[in-house]
């Protein structure tokens, strides 16, 4: 195959762009790719949402395959905003914060792809919303400690830990009730 730009050198770079379902194939040589710039990897001109929905569509069948009707039957809609997973794959964006829970089981592979293998947040925690989370984390730690104590048959310490957990949990339920 010869380069479609200069028609001289052999094409060594092959790109397939799919933008809004429209497929374009580009076959060019390295020299023309450099000159064109836009064909260079990493300088693609279409938006992140297009790219992303490309990634997402990968998981759902395209076209009228029998599998699609299967997916349709399975379709779940977000209880808060009503968006379906298929709508999400089309626009590449969620409709509300509850979507993250609704589509939780499909989320990990997507997040891994976009965020270099990461699926969990390790950064800033908001102070107000975070107060409950800090306590929750503490309770979780204490629970596993309590289990350890029970396994070691140190029941007195286990009981102490249980009381601390109770008082912490009470505090969060008060705050939640406000």
């Amino acid at each position: 195959m010869t380069c479609q730009e200069c028609g001289e050198r052999p094409a060594t770079l092959h790109f397939t762009k799919i933008i809004n379902g429209e497929k374009t194939e580009i076959h060019i040589c390295e020299k023309c790719a450099k000159e064109k710039g836009e064909a260079e990897p990493g300088t693609n001109h279409f938006s992140i949402h297009n790219l992303l929905s490309g990634l997402l569509n990968f998981e759902t069948p395209i076209g009228d395959s029998p599998a699609q009707s299967f997916y349709k039957q399975q379709q779940t809609n977000c209880p808060k905003c009503g968006i379906s997973y298929q709508q999400f794959t089309k626009i590449g964006r969620f409709g509300c914060s509850v979507c993250y829970k609704t589509f939780a089981d499909k989320l990990d592979p997507i997040l891994k792809k976009v965020h270099g293998g990461n699926t969990a947040h390790t950064g800033k925690v908001p102070t107000r919303a975070g107060a409950a989370i800090q306590i929750e984390r503490k309770v979780q730690n204490l629970r596993s400690k309590m289990k350890e104590y029970i396994e070691l048959e140190e029941f007195e310490k286990a009981a102490e830990t249980r009381d601390i957990i109770r008082s912490l949990e009470q505090r969060t339920s008060w705050e939640g009730g406000e």
Binding site: H49, L52, H121
Partner: peptide, 21 residues
Amino acid sequence: VDYAFDERRGYLTSCPTNVGT
């Protein structure tokens, strides 16, 4: 205001490419 925040996913954004921080 009350932010949309999830312990596991962090700050929740419309596009999953921004979620977390």
